[in-house]
Amino acid sequence: MELTVSKFNRFIFFKLPSAFLCGVRLKQIDENKCVVSVKHRWINQNPFNSMYFAVQAMAAELSTGAMVIYQIQKSGRKISMLVANNKSNFSKKATGRITFVCQDGHLIADAIQKTIATGEGQTFWMKSIGANEEGVQVSEMDFEWSVKLK
Protein backbone atom coordinates (compact mmCIF):
# COMPACT_ATOMS: atom_id res chain seq x y z
CA MET A 1 0.00 0.00 0.00
CA GLU A 2 1.39 3.35 -1.04
CA LEU A 3 1.67 6.01 1.65
CA THR A 4 -0.19 9.17 0.58
CA VAL A 5 -0.89 12.47 2.32
CA SER A 6 -4.59 11.64 2.83
CA LYS A 7 -3.82 8.16 4.19
CA PHE A 8 -1.25 9.59 6.57
CA ASN A 9 -3.67 12.27 7.82
CA ARG A 10 -6.19 9.48 8.48
CA PHE A 11 -3.44 7.69 10.43
CA ILE A 12 -2.93 10.89 12.50
CA PHE A 13 -6.66 10.94 13.32
CA PHE A 14 -6.68 7.36 14.63
CA LYS A 15 -3.18 6.98 16.10
CA LEU A 16 -2.20 10.55 17.12
CA PRO A 17 -5.52 12.11 18.15
CA SER A 18 -3.98 14.92 20.23
CA ALA A 19 -1.96 16.06 17.20
CA PHE A 20 -5.06 15.83 15.00
CA LEU A 21 -7.17 17.88 17.46
CA CYS A 22 -4.45 20.53 17.63
CA GLY A 23 -4.57 20.86 13.83
CA VAL A 24 -1.31 19.12 12.83
CA ARG A 25 -1.58 18.00 9.19
CA LEU A 26 0.79 16.42 6.71
CA LYS A 27 0.93 18.49 3.49
CA GLN A 28 3.66 16.84 1.40
CA ILE A 29 5.88 13.76 1.64
CA ASP A 30 8.44 11.96 -0.47
CA GLU A 31 11.66 10.13 0.36
CA ASN A 32 13.70 13.31 0.84
CA LYS A 33 11.32 16.01 2.08
CA CYS A 34 8.28 16.27 4.33
CA VAL A 35 6.07 19.29 5.03
CA VAL A 36 3.72 19.51 8.02
CA SER A 37 1.49 22.47 8.86
CA VAL A 38 -0.39 23.65 11.94
CA LYS A 39 -2.34 26.86 12.54
CA HIS A 40 -2.31 28.78 15.82
CA ARG A 41 -5.81 28.43 17.30
CA TRP A 42 -7.49 28.43 20.69
CA ILE A 43 -6.97 24.66 21.16
CA ASN A 44 -3.17 24.90 20.77
CA GLN A 45 -2.41 28.25 22.40
CA ASN A 46 -0.23 29.11 25.37
CA PRO A 47 -0.86 31.94 27.87
CA PHE A 48 1.41 34.24 25.82
CA ASN A 49 -0.87 34.42 22.78
CA SER A 50 1.15 32.07 20.60
CA MET A 51 1.34 28.35 19.82
CA TYR A 52 2.22 26.03 22.69
CA PHE A 53 5.73 24.59 22.28
CA ALA A 54 4.50 20.99 22.51
CA VAL A 55 2.24 21.49 19.48
CA GLN A 56 5.23 22.77 17.53
CA ALA A 57 7.18 19.71 18.69
CA MET A 58 4.39 17.37 17.52
CA ALA A 59 4.39 18.94 14.07
CA ALA A 60 8.19 19.00 13.82
CA GLU A 61 8.50 15.38 14.96
CA LEU A 62 5.87 14.33 12.43
CA SER A 63 7.84 16.02 9.63
CA THR A 64 10.79 13.76 10.45
CA GLY A 65 8.96 10.61 11.57
CA ALA A 66 6.61 10.45 8.60
CA MET A 67 9.62 10.06 6.31
CA VAL A 68 11.03 7.32 8.55
CA ILE A 69 7.69 5.46 8.30
CA TYR A 70 7.64 6.10 4.53
CA GLN A 71 11.10 4.63 4.00
CA ILE A 72 10.57 1.69 6.38
CA GLN A 73 7.42 0.80 4.44
CA LYS A 74 9.33 1.17 1.17
CA SER A 75 12.05 -1.22 2.42
CA GLY A 76 9.50 -4.01 2.89
CA ARG A 77 11.21 -5.08 6.13
CA LYS A 78 9.96 -5.08 9.72
CA ILE A 79 11.90 -2.27 11.36
CA SER A 80 11.15 -0.54 14.64
CA MET A 81 11.64 3.19 15.11
CA LEU A 82 11.94 5.37 18.19
CA VAL A 83 12.86 8.95 19.07
CA ALA A 84 15.96 8.69 21.26
CA ASN A 85 16.63 12.42 21.79
CA ASN A 86 15.45 15.84 20.74
CA LYS A 87 16.69 19.43 20.88
CA SER A 88 14.71 22.60 20.23
CA ASN A 89 15.29 26.28 19.73
CA PHE A 90 12.46 28.81 19.66
CA SER A 91 13.37 32.12 18.04
CA LYS A 92 10.04 33.94 17.55
CA LYS A 93 6.43 33.72 18.73
CA ALA A 94 4.53 31.16 16.67
CA THR A 95 1.30 32.76 15.43
CA GLY A 96 -0.70 32.16 12.28
CA ARG A 97 0.09 29.08 10.17
CA ILE A 98 3.42 27.45 10.99
CA THR A 99 4.95 25.11 8.42
CA PHE A 100 7.60 22.59 9.42
CA VAL A 101 9.92 21.31 6.71
CA CYS A 102 12.41 18.47 7.00
CA GLN A 103 14.75 17.71 4.10
CA ASP A 104 16.88 14.99 5.71
CA GLY A 105 15.32 11.96 4.07
CA HIS A 106 18.68 10.88 2.64
CA LEU A 107 19.84 10.01 6.18
CA ILE A 108 17.08 7.45 6.66
CA ALA A 109 17.92 5.22 3.70
CA ASP A 110 21.53 4.86 4.87
CA ALA A 111 20.46 3.90 8.41
CA ILE A 112 17.88 1.40 7.15
CA GLN A 113 20.42 -0.22 4.82
CA LYS A 114 22.96 -0.49 7.67
CA THR A 115 20.45 -1.97 10.14
CA ILE A 116 19.34 -4.54 7.55
CA ALA A 117 22.96 -5.43 6.68
CA THR A 118 24.27 -5.66 10.25
CA GLY A 119 21.15 -6.41 12.30
CA GLU A 120 22.26 -3.69 14.72
CA GLY A 121 20.31 -0.58 15.57
CA GLN A 122 21.28 2.69 13.91
CA THR A 123 20.73 6.27 15.04
CA PHE A 124 20.65 9.51 13.06
CA TRP A 125 19.65 13.14 13.65
CA MET A 126 17.04 14.92 11.53
CA LYS A 127 16.26 18.66 11.55
CA SER A 128 12.88 20.32 11.10
CA ILE A 129 12.55 24.08 10.58
CA GLY A 130 9.29 25.82 11.51
CA ALA A 131 8.46 29.06 9.71
CA ASN A 132 5.46 31.39 9.80
CA GLU A 133 3.45 32.62 6.80
CA GLU A 134 6.00 35.34 6.08
CA GLY A 135 8.76 32.73 5.88
CA VAL A 136 10.35 33.82 9.17
CA GLN A 137 11.81 30.96 11.19
CA VAL A 138 10.04 30.53 14.55
CA SER A 139 11.62 27.27 15.71
CA GLU A 140 14.20 24.67 14.84
CA MET A 141 14.00 21.14 16.19
CA ASP A 142 16.34 18.20 15.93
CA PHE A 143 15.26 14.61 16.55
CA GLU A 144 17.56 11.63 17.01
CA TRP A 145 15.84 8.61 15.52
CA SER A 146 16.78 5.02 16.23
CA VAL A 147 15.90 2.23 13.80
CA LYS A 148 16.39 -1.48 14.39
CA LEU A 149 15.49 -4.65 12.54
CA LYS A 150 12.70 -6.56 14.35
Rank of each mutant, 00 (worst) to 15 (best):
W145E: 01
A60N: 01
V38A: 10
S63L: 09
I98T: 04
Y52G: 05
A109N: 10
H106R: 10
S63Y: 05
G135H: 08
A60G: 07
E61Y: 02
K114M: 15
Y70T: 03
A109F: 09
E134R: 14
A109Q: 15
M58V: 04
C22M: 15
K127W: 01
E140D: 05
K148R: 14
V101M: 02
F124Y: 06
M141P: 04
V136N: 10
W145H: 04
E140L: 13
K114G: 06
G65R: 09
F14M: 09
E133Q: 08
A19E: 02
V35H: 03
D104C: 06
K33C: 09
L82M: 14
N86P: 01
V24C: 11
T123M: 05
N49I: 08
L62D: 03
Q45T: 13
I108G: 00
I72M: 09
A59E: 00
F100I: 06
N44M: 12
A117R: 10
V147N: 06
L3D: 00
V68M: 05
H40Y: 14
G121P: 15
S88E: 03
L21G: 07
F48D: 04
S18T: 12
F20G: 01
T123W: 00
L21E: 05
A131D: 00
N44C: 13
W42D: 01
S50L: 03
G121W: 05
A111T: 15
K74T: 01
Y70L: 09
I69E: 06
G23W: 08
K39D: 07
G23R: 14
I12W: 08
S63M: 07
A19K: 01
K74Q: 05
F11I: 11
V68T: 02
V5N: 09
R41T: 12
E31N: 13
R77H: 12
T99H: 05
M67W: 03
G23F: 12
A131L: 04
I43W: 04
T64Y: 00
I116R: 08
N9R: 12
V68Q: 00
F124G: 05
F11A: 14
I116L: 10
I116E: 04
E31K: 15
G121M: 11
D142C: 12
D110R: 13
R77Q: 12
I43K: 12
H106A: 12
T118E: 07
A57R: 06
V35C: 09
R97W: 05
M58Q: 04
G76L: 08
A131S: 07
A54P: 00
F53W: 07
K33I: 10
I98R: 05
E2Y: 10
K93Q: 06
T99E: 03
